[in-house]
């Protein structure tokens, strides 16, 4: 099985970290509170393991945004929340005064916007660091269990994962990037170029 060297792993973690820092800054401005970021996790693993991990973290009821990206490498970027927390985030974004039925109406729209900002910040930062261009499709609102969300993903996945918390509201979310085998090889080549330039 393809493996990442220690330095490739380190470089990818750092690039992801920089992207998430930018994303958290944008989100923080939207919700007017500090976002706490975890250290990013990167793992070359099986689809089944990712399904299991996300199910455990979210009680397997997830709302989120999925965005396909393409360029030097292709994959899916996901912004995920436990379903019961996503509505709280929408409440924070849209204001506390809106009635619940109005909030429900806005859930898809509000999460799409948050997803767009966060995922683009992450991917854009990664693209800038690697001096490549990444194109994104429109964000899709997704709901369901982790198995449904990862439908169509390849069996072996590069799983990049960071969790973030809106500190005052105790809302935890996850940003996940999924890359298949071909894209992992492409990404490794881009990282090798970056490391050679140091």
């Amino acid at each position: 099985m393809l493996e990442l060297s220690e330095l490739e792993h380190d470089a990818l973690t750092e690039l992801f970290n920089i992207g998430m820092g930018l994303a958290a800054s944008s989100l923080s401005q939207m919700v007017h509170e500090e976002i706490k970021l975890s250290v990013p996790h990167i793992k070359l693993t099986t689809r089944d393991m990712v399904v299991k991990l996300l199910a455990e973290e979210t009680d397997n009821s997830i709302s989120g945004i999925k965005q396909y990206f393409s360029g030097s490498f292709n994959g899916d970027a996901l912004l995920l929340f436990p379903a019961h927390k996503s509505m709280e985030l929408v409440r924070v974004l849209m204001g506390e005064t809106l009635p619940l039925d109005a909030l429900t109406e806005f859930e898809q729209e509000a999460l799409s916007e948050v997803g767009n900002i966060i995922l683009n910040a992450c991917l854009g930062s990664l693209a800038n660091s690697l001096h490549i261009e990444i194109a994104y499709q429109l964000p899709l609102f997704v709901q369901g269990g982790s198995d449904d969300l990862l439908d169509g993903s390849s069996d072996i996945i590069l799983f990049l994962w960071v969790n973030f918390t809106l500190m005052e509201k105790d809302i935890k979310g996850y940003v996940v990037f999924l890359l298949g085998m071909d894209s992992i090889t492409q990404l490794q080549q881009q990282i090798a170029i970056l490391l050679r330039e140091i």
Partner: peptide, 8 residues
């Protein structure tokens, strides 16, 4: 740091 939030 990559954490460029104003509060930080």
């Amino acid at each position: 740091t990559a954490n460029i939030q104003d509060s930080v």
